[in-house]
Design a protein around this nucleic acid. Structure first.
Length: 206
DNA sequence: AACCAGGAGACAT
DNA sequence: ATGTCTCATGGT
């Protein structure tokens, strides 16, 4: 029903797989439009490849991505990720690994935490993974009427995904983001929420 | 002019 | 294992 309401989201457009990786890091705790500016700067300088980004000057990189916020930190994160992909033989080289092993390896990279790792698994490596992000937590908390803490956010959302197709999970994640943005903010009551039937608590009007 | 936007790491408990 | 604190910028 979310699909009917919001339509296909065409999620995460990017020219290359590694652009998605960079985007996933740059967008952390940041509005997409700000991350987008940083990506445009990187793209204009041909820095959106693991080797080029790993070789870039850190201070210069910091200036390029300043619009995305947390620039000094994210510059380090980006280069750590670039090194990881370069050392691993790029997306192609890494894709021979099993999902669980790949996830562990990603989590070992500075700047790649659970959400970013799962986003990369789903959108770069096409693995069927549920993304338990803040938006999903918001929706589940509205549906259940309970607060979703970090622990239950992790456990409650992960197990049933094994049989799902990655394409569906991509779309679902995108729809959840769209819905959470439109309805599940912090204020109460919404009359036209598509989840209203099962929405024991309430959704928020914008 | 406060408030928020696809988090993650360091650190303490 | 589970909570705080900090990090930084641009748009409403």
């Amino acid at each position: 029903m979310l699909l009917a309401r919001y339509g296909a989201q065409g999620w995460w457009p990017a020219d290359s797989a590694f652009e998605i990786v960079a985007g996933a890091i740059l967008v952390q705790r940041t509005a997409w439009r700000n991350a987008e500016k940083a990506i445009a700067e990187l793209k204009a300088r041909e820095l959106l490849s693991p080797s080029a980004l790993a070789a870039a000057d850190g201070a210069a990189l910091t200036e390029l991505i300043r619009p995305a916020g947390f620039a000094p930190t994210k510059a380090q994160y980006l280069q750590a990720a670039a090194r990881f992909f370069a050392d691993g033989g790029g997306v192609g080289g890494l894709s021979s690994r099993a999902t669980a092993a790949l996830r562990d390896a990603l989590l070992g990279v500075r700047g790649i935490g659970p959400e970013t790792a799962d986003s990369i698994l789903l959108y770069v490596f096409d693995r069927p993974v549920w993304i338990a992000d803040a938006y999903a937590a918001r929706i589940f908390s509205r549906l259940s009427g309970k607060r979703i803490d970090s622990a239950s956010q992790h456990s409650l959302t992960r197990p049933w995904t094994a049989a799902q197709r990655s394409a569906d999970l991509r779309e679902l994640h995108a729809l959840i983001v769209a819905h959470a943005k439109a309805h599940c903010r912090t204020r109460p009551v919404c009359d036209d929420c598509p989840l209203r039937r099962s929405c024991a608590h309430r959704c928020a009007q914008r």
